[in-house]
Design a protein around this nucleic acid. Structure first.
Lengths: 225, 225
DNA sequence: CAAGCTATCAAGCGATCTATTGAATGACAA
DNA sequence: TTGTCATTCAATAGATCGCTTGATAGCTTG
């Protein structure tokens, strides 16, 4: 057979750089945090419970793999996910893991606690249209500020009990958070039920919604560029 | 803030198992080979120029990550890509690498040689419909046997010169191979030009075509299941 | 310009990964 | 049963990775 492989290895080696980015739980956690909102190294270090130096090192791997962008902001360096393509890839890996590895699903179930009533995108839109429900974002306020579903109101999980009065008693509350494997919305629905308030959970988090909903506008952007 | 992270790590750790599968050039090469056709350990070891034991070890990582399936075939063990989801993920990672890392693209260009005329899916269908072109698959015969574009004829690259007579001189030849980063089709077009035959290259390989083309039937399958 | 803070760099140690070697398992055929 | 061959298991050295510590560079404020 004709020999056609002088540096085929180089090709796979280059792709493996990106693969390595996904090979560490720490980096995946950082990526997950960044898929909610841009953050500084310090914030990420604190959120992930690692030293600043170590966090910085992992962020550099992710940067080398093209998964995140880096930007000086005064005295800080702010990292963000590299774009919708990178976000899509991360979500695809996560979903593939869940689909193909049973372990992931078991780990998720242990972590999320008892099942709560869940509705999907179409059902949410229908209920909002009929004025039957109100939508709340139970993530931390900074993440809401960095991007949220149109029409949602920010009630971080740790403020939920004190702010129950803000929620009209006659309408169902739909809660969403970081994604299908984030426990915030599950927990919020359980607490609302405990307080006697009708509630359910949206099966998408902000990143999933963003990719799905802004697909048209984004592809238009890409086309223009 | 309410503490909600007893074993959140377990979740990322489980996802990282799949990530690790993509962290080694050797595993990526095996995955690439398997995305063309199922193969035994021995065949894979020979194709990738590694020892049998080493190849087997890497295949087990891929299996643990849920990326490949394993099946006894008499005295052999035949590995195959785990399904369209796994194939989709591999292609997504590869394409994302190419899009985001400049290095990959440079490595690819070095490897592929001078540019050749390339047409896309729609153009191929149009030309085939008008009877202007014939489509050839220049991959090894086993890969053609494991799956090929409907209507293509198998002419492995190393048999091309001897079989020029089979090609009608009045029709353009369109060649395809393993994918956009495989050199076979590029080389085939150059050789056909050298022999005075009009030729061009399809911008998709068999895996891409398969995912795109069989999408409808496959989602129907999934829905039925 | 000096102080104070954030992020990165550099070096080092332990843990993990990779490829090799040789032995063990499992299927087939005589 | 015995021999043979493909594959896997087990053990090992060498390389790489991951986290820590201490030093350095960059920006901002006084």
């Amino acid at each position: 057979m004709t020999e056609l492989a002088p540096n085929k290895e180089a090709l796979f080696e280059a792709i493996a750089v990106m693969g390595k980015a996904f090979a560490s739980p720490v980096r995946l956690e950082l990526l997950d945090l960044l898929s909610q909102a841009p953050r500084t190294v310090e914030q990420l270090a604190q959120a992930s419970q690692h030293s600043t130096a170590n966090t910085s090192q992992h962020l550099q791997s992710l940067h080398a793999a093209g998964m995140v962008t880096r930007e000086r902001d005064g005295i800080h360096v702010r990292y963000a996910i590299a774009g919708d393509e990178a976000l899509r890839l991360w979500l695809a890996l996560r979903d593939a893991s869940v689909a193909q590895l049973g372990e992931v699903e078991r780990a998720a179930r242990d972590y999320l606690g008892p099942a709560v009533e869940t509705i999907d995108r179409a059902e949410l839109i229908a209920r909002l249209g009929r004025g039957e429900a109100i939508l709340i974002d139970v993530r931390p306020a900074e993440e809401y500020a960095a991007g949220h579903i149109d029409g949602a109101r920010s009630i971080p999980l740790n403020e939920l009990e004190q702010r129950l009065a803000e929620l009209p008693a006659d309408r169902e509350v739909v809660a969403y958070c970081r994604g299908p494997y984030c426990a915030y919305a599950h927990e919020a629905v359980r607490r609302l039920h405990a307080a006697g308030h009708p509630a359910s959970r949206l099966d998408h988090g902000w990143p999933e919604w963003h990719l799905e909903h802004d697909r048209n506008s984004k592809t238009a952007e890409t086309r223009a560029a």
